Simulated assay, not measured.
Amino acid sequence: MAVDDRREYCRTAMSAKVKVCHEQLGEFVFSTRDISDGGVFIVVDNEPFAPELGDKVKVQVQGLPVPAPELDMVVVRKTIDGFGLQFGESVN
Rank of each mutant, 00 (worst) to 15 (best):
61 V>T: 13
46 N>E: 15
67 P>W: 08
80 I>C: 05
39 G>Q: 06
53 L>I: 15
56 K>N: 05
90 S>G: 04
26 G>Y: 03
43 V>Q: 10
56 K>L: 13
59 V>E: 06
88 G>Q: 10
7 R>L: 08
44 V>K: 01
40 V>R: 04
10 C>M: 14
63 G>C: 12
22 H>K: 02
9 Y>F: 15
57 V>G: 10
19 K>V: 03
54 G>F: 09
59 V>P: 03
7 R>Y: 09
14 M>K: 01
89 E>I: 05
12 T>M: 11
92 N>Q: 14
65 P>K: 12
54 G>K: 05
28 F>L: 00
5 D>L: 10
8 E>T: 07
56 K>R: 12
2 A>G: 04
31 S>H: 09
2 A>Y: 08
14 M>W: 07
39 G>I: 00
6 R>W: 01
88 G>R: 00
77 R>C: 10
40 V>T: 13
40 V>M: 12
2 A>F: 11
40 V>L: 15
17 K>N: 10
23 E>V: 05
42 I>V: 15
45 D>C: 00
2 A>H: 08
53 L>N: 00
11 R>L: 11
54 G>P: 06
33 R>M: 11
72 D>E: 12
65 P>V: 15
89 E>S: 04
10 C>V: 15
29 V>S: 06
52 E>N: 11
12 T>G: 06
24 Q>W: 00
75 V>A: 12
64 L>Y: 03
90 S>F: 08
28 F>A: 07
37 D>V: 02
43 V>R: 00
16 A>P: 05
74 V>W: 00
31 S>Y: 00
66 V>C: 02
4 D>T: 10
39 G>A: 07
19 K>F: 01
84 G>I: 06
51 P>C: 10
77 R>I: 10
13 A>V: 13
